[in-house]
């Protein structure tokens, strides 16, 4: 796997499913949505507990099965 493929989008620790994102942020749906373009394909890294764009990488990368 090349470095460019070791990105959050392909990582098992990256939660970008809209339903899961809405579960993770209480109150998000009151005035916004995880199914909108402003959230887009960003997601939550459960290792770093950070909200990230999907093209980043880190030493904890583990391929998503």
């Amino acid at each position: 796997m090349t470095t460019s493929e070791r990105v959050c989008r392909r990582c098992r620790y990256f939660v970008d499913d809209p339903h899961a994102v809405e579960q993770a942020f209480v109150g998000l749906t009151i005035l916004s949505s995880a199914w909108g373009d402003t959230r887009g394909n960003q997601g939550l890294c459960i290792v770093h507990q950070q909200f990230l764009t999907p093209k980043l990488t880190c030493n904890h990368f583990t391929i998503r099965r």
Binding site: A24, F25, V26, G27, L28, I30, L31, S32, S33, A34, G36, T38, R39, G40, Q42, G43, L44, Q49, Q50, F51, L52, T53, L56
Partner: peptide, 28 residues
């Protein structure tokens, strides 16, 4: 743009999950 703005910027600056959650609460 409120909560959507917090979410959009949260991802762009790699904010902590808790910070976004607090942002959502305060803004709402």
């Amino acid at each position: 743009c409120g909560v959507s703005g917090s979410i959009a910027i949260g991802g762009a600056v790699r904010a902590d999950k808790d910070h976004i959650a607090i942002g959502i609460g305060v803004v709402s």
